[in-house]
Amino acid sequence: MTTYANPDVLVETDWVKANLGKPGIKIVEVDVDTQAYDAGHIPGAIGFNWQTQLQDQIVRDIIGKEDFEKLVGGAGISPQDTVILYGDNNNWFAAYAFWLFKLYGHRDVRLMNGGRQKWLNEPDKEMTTEKPNPQPVPYVAQPPDPSLRAFVSEVLEVARMRHKNLVDVRSPDEFTGKVIAPPGMTETAQRGGHIPGAKNVPWNTAVNPDGTFKSADELRRIYLEQQAIDPAKETIVYCRIGERSSHTWFVLKYLLGLQNVKNYDGSWTEYGNLIAAPIER
């Protein structure tokens, strides 16, 4: 049995328990359901709100470098710290935050395997409502790493040239245009379907029933053999708003070790609103 290409980016719940409160280790929860952190979280964990803290509040974009520095430094995290991210829905937004940390050049950031659900269901793991009161520290981020993020111009080129792997991680119903978004979602698009040439590999293909990632062998079989994603080519992953795709981006880039994997965070809510963009159903 082979191991993940970068096993260091993943920690188990037992590891987190054993390292709670240790200097240099900072735990951050990021959830889809923003009420979850307030109801209870891992002792000492900071909570980031993806809607209000990880997004620019005026322009549709991720937070800028300065806001990232303010947010992360304000949470008492220094560039040398090990950041452990976890969250609900199998780490969707935790993976999104992971992508953001990497984009701004944070060296040591990891996901807690299984996310909040695994911690919650393990009897020996504590949760609290007590919020930490971190001392702000100076944080200088790197300029955003362009090798991790795809913009629409590149995606349109791929739709035309088909020279890169394009992976759509939404549900089959979203991929075929039967629905434009999962029920109840407010962020939506004018048109349903997918980007021409994209392969549909729903994000949850990568996880076990308990929310942990599948083994390296299984992941390799699914993505490289069954789905025939060509590791020699560059890869772009997308979903609806860029959080589920962060999850698969993490799998392809860090667990399978593919070179040049980008997250297209504009995703379907950008592409599906473009005038004259080619769409397949």
Binding site: V32, Q35, G184, P202, N204
Partner: peptide
């Protein structure tokens, strides 16, 4: 508490947001 369940089929998570949130209250408080 109203939870946006049924976001997407998710092993271990799909449609179980309300159960998990209730469990969180019981564990943390």
């Amino acid at each position: 508490d109203v939870v946006s369940d049924e976001l997407c089929p998710a092993p271990g998570a799909g449609g179980e947001g309300s159960i998990n949130l209730a469990k969180t209250y019981a564990k943390a408080q």
